[in-house]
């Protein structure tokens, strides 16, 4: 059995003049949770839909679970669970009716006790009609249908979209449990914290091109943070500016300072031990800022 569950090489797909993805190379290992990170419109959904033969690539090769999705889509789909980014369900069916329909498409092989268990954990009532559900509850239906047949591979496009923080955590827990049972999880997201919490490795896609594949920890460490420090009295912040990775963005009469920190915070915190600190706040940058930091770092390396 191959250790590579998703193997994509030179994948290219255009919609008319718009090149959605270009020459993508991607390998996802068996049993890992892999985050696919990028802003809206970056090409995450296009990549995922090529893996399930919902759309046909213009170029490149795709192998999923050792199979060619174009040659044998049903075999791939039988072993995969999919949650689309823009989940749409038949509005006139009940939740149970929709799940039973998906079960019928899977040959009625699903353990219905497990479905009830998933619904209970996600606090999902099976009786209501889909059109009466909130966006979050519809998303829960999507999560249940993706997981209910205990697939070998989970392809999830923004799995926690519209869920409250408690449910987001529960979904991430379900993914971890699926992984523990041997499943591989490939999920797309534009939420850094979600990827950070769940994924071991991550690929960053921007404008249809993969710009980085890295361990999540390494990506996070590379990311900038902003730190706002308030002092009990005016101080000379010179020693802080000399800490490696720290840039002073602004300061107010020596009683507060806004810093940008690249990499680990350890150096800054040690340097602050010598200061009369009254307050210390850090803030993660937006994904776009991480991208910019990455590109700037890339440019510097190139130079």
């Amino acid at each position: 059995m191959s250790d590579i569950v998703i193997d994509v090489q030179d994948l290219t797909k255009s919609y008319g003049r718009v090149r959605a993805v270009r020459d993508i190379d991607l390998k996802v290992r068996r049993g890992e949770i892999f985050g696919y990170l990028g802003p809206n419109g970056a090409g995450k959904t296009t990549t995922m839909r090529c893996l399930l033969d919902l759309i046909r690539p213009d170029g490149g090769t795709v192998r999923v679970l050792g199979l060619d999705p174009q040659a044998d889509p049903v075999a791939v789909q039988a072993r995969a669970g999919y949650l689309p980014g823009e989940l749409r369900l038949d509005p006139n069916m009940t939740v149970e009716g929709a799940l039973r329909y998906f079960n019928a498409l899977r040959g009625n092989k699903v353990d219905w006790g497990f479905v009830r268990q998933l619904a209970e954990r996600l606090d999902l009532d099976l009786k209501p009609i889909i059109k009466n559900l909130s966006h979050g509850n519809k998303q829960k239906v999507g999560v249940v249908q993706a997981l209910m047949h205990r697939p070998e591979l989970l392809l999830l496009d923004e799995p926690t979209l519209g869920l409250d923080p408690l449910m987001q955590r529960e979904v991430l827990r379900l993914l971890a449990e699926a992984q523990a049972e041997g499943a591989t999880v490939f999920f797309a997201s534009h939420i850094l914290s979600e990827v950070q919490a769940a994924a071991e490795r991550v690929a960053i896609i921007r404008e249809g091109v993969i710009v980085e594949v890295a361990e999540t920890a390494s990506l996070i460490n590379r990311a900038m943070r902003r730190a706002t420090i308030r002092f009990k009295q005016a101080v000379d912040i010179g020693p802080l500016a000399n800490v490696p990775g720290v840039t002073v963005l602004s300061q107010d009469d020596g009683t507060s300072v806004l810093l940008q920190v690249e990499g680990e915070m350890d150096g800054l915190i040690k340097a602050l031990a010598a200061f009369p600190v009254s307050d210390f706040e850090t803030e993660r940058p937006s994904l776009e800022e991480i991208f910019l930091a990455y590109y700037e770092a890339g440019d510097e390396e190139g130079n």
């Binding site: 399930l52 919902l54 075999a75 789909q77 689309p84 038949d90 040959g107 249908q145």
Partner: peptide
């Protein structure tokens, strides 16, 4: 309506 996307992700051939 966007429904077909999920239906065809199940093991049912076109």
């Amino acid at each position: 309506k966007g429904i077909l996307d999920l239906v065809l992700a199940h093991p049912v051939s076109r």
